[in-house]
Design a binder for these strands. Structure first.
Lengths: 222, 222, 222, 222
DNA sequence: ACTTAACCGAGACGGTACGTCGTGTCTTGCC
DNA sequence: GGCAAGACACGACGTACCGTCTCGGTTAAGT
């Protein structure tokens, strides 16, 4: 959940009655949350997001109608449209963006970046775009993107790069954040601005430029 | 103009009677467009965009009211809110992003990138963010950003890089588009995702990494 | 209701849960219509119609504002401004136009016609004028006037005249519609064209002319 | 003209240079009024009034467009839409409503009333309806109807009735205004409310009822 | 022929109201 | 107490006309 504003502590979980409180915890009175509604809402969110334009064009009204759900139910569990989109996004978050370990940093990075580009080009790209677009006016949303999407991957990326350093493929003391932004920044830029072709070979070109450049001379040494 | 939807060929120009068509072109009949209104609208757009949140919070209703202008007048000249924002922005930050010519590519690029970062960090950054965000669901808008903002600058950037090649600072045969996306991509990424600090020294770091890397070994040679 | 355009069968009734469908009929789901809003709207309609000029000067925007009601709510229940006015009017002047039963046709008719003239001369007359005026371009509206105002009264008028026939005051076989239009037509004419004085004694004069004429010689006998 | 608001005294006349002032009157300087435009405007007014709904639905914008005329030209010569409609109406005013002189009041009246009904049923009826409808919120308009249409005919009607009195067909001392409103009121009522059939034989029925009634017993004598 | 003055078309202007859509909240009866 | 249904107050949308204005161009009468 992007933001926990619900009456129940574990709202949003698949099954609220198996929450943290364990065996001793008593289920609250009243009808339990409908898991069917929750999933239907998330499904409709993704569907409408892919169908029509972006974040701004997506309306709660339409989601509720498409999901055969009362608007109240949406508002009961998600405080804003942004939270809903973030939730829907993380549901669709991908296993396929794990980093391989081929023994070569450049190959590892390049392979993962190719997969990212493939996702950006698929209709899941729309979701990311909507998230980044919506995030420009809703800090919560961009934060969700960072926490749910960016950081988990970046953590793996650090490890991948570190392996390269350990193997001597990259110079020690490199500013890893700078390197990673230099690797991924161009992809995001072409994805969002669409000023130039974004195909998978672009990943190789960037890797070659950045990682070769690193090898040659440490950027922090100047 | 993002989109020419007006009856008149040169709508949006400062002075419609000095349009493209030259000496032979006659002013169309009817009352000419009010330049005062046009500027008032652009001014109010910038003002309100800076005051309130982002693109979604900006309403044409409010712009018209603030500019003492009928809503009709706004709609007469700009097809969408997006087009209006694009126009307002490009009017706003055109000069200060010109490239210097200091005799050193790295210094030229770095200086210009610093200025870009400065704009991104100022409240005019909101404008760019709004534009890029809006562009994710409105192709016209992102196209406007490219044509009115990106390409004019990139043209100058090509020249700056070419000077570097001519002076032997950069290897001939470099893929200039790749280089430029590698230089600017990280800035856009940090600006939009806000996962890391974006200060002016970041420009220097990127330039050092990319341009030194280039010097060392041409990326296309592998 | 001038026109049933609502989702619910008995929209417009004071209490939708006691509609036509009787005991078996179940209330539709969802929040029930706000009776307070409905009355507030009708009240504001009457108020504004009396204050300002005629039908054309009356705006739904103003009604909604005066009634502290969303414009949507007005549009939800009344398809047009005309329908709203018709509803407001028939709500307004229903009782005082009943026919008396004094034992004399002429007196009965004359008394009721006097009351009609009194209404026409009051500021409720504006309402009728607005209705008839609007009805000239909106068939629905004039139909509403007929069904909600004219026919109910005419039904009583038939009975009043019939009593006169039964008592021998009027000849049997009279064309009652012709008689009634001859009685009321002059009033409507003076009311709408305002070419001559319309005071209550006019009712007596018409009655004398028409009903005496009838007595003398049946119009259908020629 | 319903209202004289023009710069020139005789504006609205077919040919301003042959105005009241005669041979000695000098034409004012400047371009004279375009008679073609004037007629085109009046023609378009009638056309649009017949095509679409009533007075309220008629827009100056549409008239100017249909007449290939600048809006300014309309506003220059007619202060309000009402004035324009009244002017258009009087242009189409009819010769066919003159009263015959057959030697019988009842026949004379009946014939003329039949012609009026025929006009009401034709598409010129729309014009009268629009005028009466518009007149309910614009006193100028109903006044125009009275002065241009009602009074001229009523003047003739007085004479016709007087002939009847002179010939002994009607009792002396009758209230002619009451009689005329009783004759025409029912026609106007059916025309505007459309609650009953309005065909030409209705004229005969009314005449029979009213004029026979008069003969029988003077209405004022009671 | 040239000036003067008013008219003309076109159409942009600041406004008002339109009727619609989506917001987030509320009130029902049912589960 | 969750849930669907849907009415509610509200705010912005984009459009249609309003009546006014400002252009370039036209049409005469008076120089």
């Amino acid at each position: 959940m992007v933001q926990n504003h619900t009456r129940r502590a574990n709202a949003g979980n698949a099954d609220p009655r198996n929450g943290i409180e364990g065996a001793a915890g008593k289920r609250p009175p009243g009808r339990p949350r409908s898991e069917a509604s929750r999933q239907s809402i998330l499904r409709s969110t993704l569907k409408l997001l892919k169908q029509h334009g972006g974040f701004a064009e997506l309306s709660i009204e339409a989601i509720a109608a498409d999901a055969n759900v009362g608007k109240t139910t949406v508002y009961r569990w998600w405080p804003t449209k942004a939270a809903l989109v973030a939730d829907a996004f993380s549901t669709s978050a991908d296993q396929e963006l794990r980093f391989p370990d081929t023994g070569s940093v450049q190959r590892d990075m390049s392979l993962q970046m190719r997969r990212l580009i493939r996702i950006f080009r698929s209709n899941r790209g729309k979701l990311v775009a909507a998230l980044l677009a919506g995030g420009q006016s809703d800090p919560k949303l961009i934060q969700a993107f960072r926490e749910r999407f960016l950081w988990p991957r970046r953590k793996q990326a650090y490890q991948t790069l570190q392996r390269g350093i350990d193997r001597g493929e990259l110079p020690a003391g490199s500013d890893l954040d700078l390197v990673l932004d230099s690797l991924y920044g161009p992809i995001y830029m072409r994805f969002l601005i669409r000023h130039d072709k974004l195909d998978e070979s672009f990943a190789d070109d960037i890797c070659a430029l950045i990682l070769n450049g690193l090898k040659c001379r440490p950027p922090r040494g100047n």
